[in-house]
């Protein structure tokens, strides 16, 4: 039986994604964004004027919320071009003529996209740890939060890969994947009052539970998002497996208007959701419970 994951493809993808000037710029921009977010969050919660643990707790909370959004978007951004670029740059033909199966290819792409996103997330741990100095966050919730964040990256990667397998062109796959990923985070999270079950599919909600606790076990908080992620993984694999050769060699007629409509609809929904959900994700428990 053939291995599901091709170490060769994973290694090559990591080398491709983590080398070169573009990777260096992306990594540094990401870290810079995290630093800025951490500083703003900590000062917004009265660092230097109020109790240190309040600033530490609030700062950590908003930092991981931002990281959750970035994680899911980052995962999608990395994974979205992974198949389409192979097709556009004519490397997929060569891969297709090796014994590597379609399933092996897509699982390997998924793993490598996740690993790149996870590596970037890991790089931000020392920055996030800076807020621990102020107190207010214990080890348990911090670890739980990072587990959820890695899940968010996996979710984003799965969604990005799904877009990559479906949309054939990078120019279509990347914006749809990014907007969709942000939509997954914001839209589901914004449904917290109307439908807590649906809201649980957002990594933002999972992060909130992980930080605040609220009596919900971690795996229950993170599970819905990971289930959705699993469904998308499966969808991506089935999409690529089904008639893969025909689609890659003879792309279907490009219905550009469809892609544009989808793009516009996603952008509209995301804008509405972003505005509506920012208040909804604000965890009352962080401040009202006075957890230390």
């Amino acid at each position: 039986m053939d291995p599901i994951i091709s170490v060769s493809v994973v290694r090559r993808e990591l080398r491709q994604n983590l080398r070169g000037p573009a990777a260096l710029v992306l990594e540094n921009l990401y870290l810079l964004g995290i630093v800025v977010a951490a500083v703003v969050a900590v000062f917004a919660y009265g660092a230097g004027t109020g109790p240190g643990w309040v600033a530490g707790e609030g700062g950590f909370y908003w930092l991981v919320i931002i990281q959750a959004v970035l994680g899911v978007v980052l995962g999608a951004t990395i994974a979205a071009p992974s198949m389409t670029v192979e097709s556009e740059q004519k490397t997929l033909d060569i891969l297709t003529t090796t014994p590597l199966s379609s399933t092996g290819l897509i699982w390997s792409k998924l793993l490598s996209s996740f690993l790149v996103g996870a590596a970037m997330l890991s790089m931000s741990v020392p920055i996030a740890a800076g807020v621990f100095v102020l107190g207010g966050v214990s080890l348990g919730p911090a670890v739980a939060t990072y587990v959820v964040l890695y899940g968010a990256v996996a979710l984003g990667a799965a969604w990005g890969l799904f877009c990559s397998a479906r949309l054939v062109r990078t120019a279509a796959a990347v914006p749809v994947a990014v907007l969709g990923a942000a939509g997954i985070a914001f839209v589901f999270s914004g449904l917290q009052k109307e439908s807590p079950a649906l809201a649980a599919f957002s990594p933002l909600t999972s992060v909130r539970y992980a930080v605040v606790g609220q009596g919900v076990p971690l795996f229950m908080a993170a599970l819905p998002a990971w289930v959705l992620s699993g469904v998308l993984w499966l969808g991506a694999i089935l999409t690529l497996g089904e008639g893969a050769k025909e689609r890659l060699v003879l792309p279907p007629l490009r219905r550009q208007w469809r892609v544009r409509c989808l793009f516009a609809a996603l952008a509209f929904v995301m804008c509405l959701a972003a505005v509506g959900s920012m208040g909804a994700v604000r965890p009352e428990g962080v401040w009202s419970s006075g957890s230390t």
């Binding site: 493809v9 290694r11 740059q89 490397t91 033909d93």
Partner: peptide
């Protein structure tokens, strides 16, 4: 595919890999 070598007319390469890494990755496949 096990006993077929194929060289297309237009093909891409993985720019950031070295020649050895490129060949090694395909050999492993």
């Amino acid at each position: 595919r096990r006993f077929l070598g194929y060289m297309p007319d237009f093909f891409g390469v993985y720019d950031h890999l070295t020649v050895h890494e490129y060949l090694e990755s395909f050999g492993q496949l």
